[in-house]
Simulated assay, not measured.
Amino acid sequence: GTFITQLGPVHANIVLLDEINRSSAKTQSAMLEAMQERQTSIGGEEYRLPSPFMVLATQNPIEQEGTYQLPEAQMDRFMLKDVLDYPTPAEETEIIRRIDAGVFSAERKPAAAASLDAVIGVQELVKRIYIDPAIINYIVGLVFVTRNAEQYIDRRLAGFIEFGASPRASIAFSQAARAVALINGRDHVIPEDVKSLAHRVLRHRLILGFDAVAEQVPVETIIDAVVASVQTP
């Protein structure tokens, strides 16, 4: 007989990791390779992931039992981090209505919202959105301040930062700002596109010390101070 390699569920165009902090260190290491190298390794063989490839993940911020700390290197590879609050009464009513209507039932297969070619086409459009060198300098300036905060923002807030954002933050700002411009019907990036992304790009990339946790200082407060310290072009 012969062995046949069965590729796992990560070999998909969109991968959803539900409660990623419940994944073991070994699983997270495998995902790190997938997110960075766009490949998996099985028995010394490398298998390329399909294109486009996107990873979405959820994380429960409350329950800690049975969870693992996510490595900073893996967090850094997520372009954006959103924080979801409780739904509004209207949204919660809509959730109940959809469940009662069977929208989320296993038997009901959702229709495709877009083809793979359409997604790739939009990705190519994003690359063609113009970003002025002044905007790039603005992005780099924001990220630079996170690494040298004591020189630019309130010393108390600066003292909470142990490590600033990596160059991946600048790349994420640039790419995401282009996407925001396209969504808003523009062929160029404006400073407001960058500002609107500050929390989502930086909140998981700033490593705060224990004092910030003890004093319950939100990372968004520090990010707002960083944005306020850099002159808008």
Rank of each mutant, 00 (worst) to 15 (best):
G1E: 14
I4S: 14
A12P: 04
N13R: 09
N13E: 11
V15H: 07
L17I: 01
L17K: 00
I20W: 00
L32R: 01
L32D: 01
T40R: 08
I42Q: 12
G43S: 06
E45N: 13
R48N: 12
P52S: 11
F53C: 10
L56W: 03
A57W: 07
Q59G: 00
N60H: 04
Q64G: 00
G66R: 01
L70S: 04
M75Y: 01
F78L: 05
M79N: 09
K81E: 11
K81G: 02
V83L: 03
Y86A: 10
P87H: 04
V103N: 06
S105P: 12
A111G: 14
A113K: 13
V122K: 13
Q123N: 08
L125H: 15
L125D: 15
Y130S: 12
D132M: 02
A134V: 09
I135T: 02
N137I: 05
N137E: 15
F144E: 13
A149V: 05
Y152W: 11
I153K: 11
R156C: 03
G159I: 07
F163P: 02
P167V: 01
A169Y: 08
R178S: 03
V180Q: 03
L182W: 09
I183Q: 08
N184C: 05
R186V: 07
H188Y: 14
V194E: 05
L197A: 07
A198N: 09
H199S: 13
L206E: 06
F210W: 13
D211L: 05
P218G: 01
V219P: 01
E220N: 14
V227Q: 10
S229V: 01
Q231W: 06
Q231I: 09
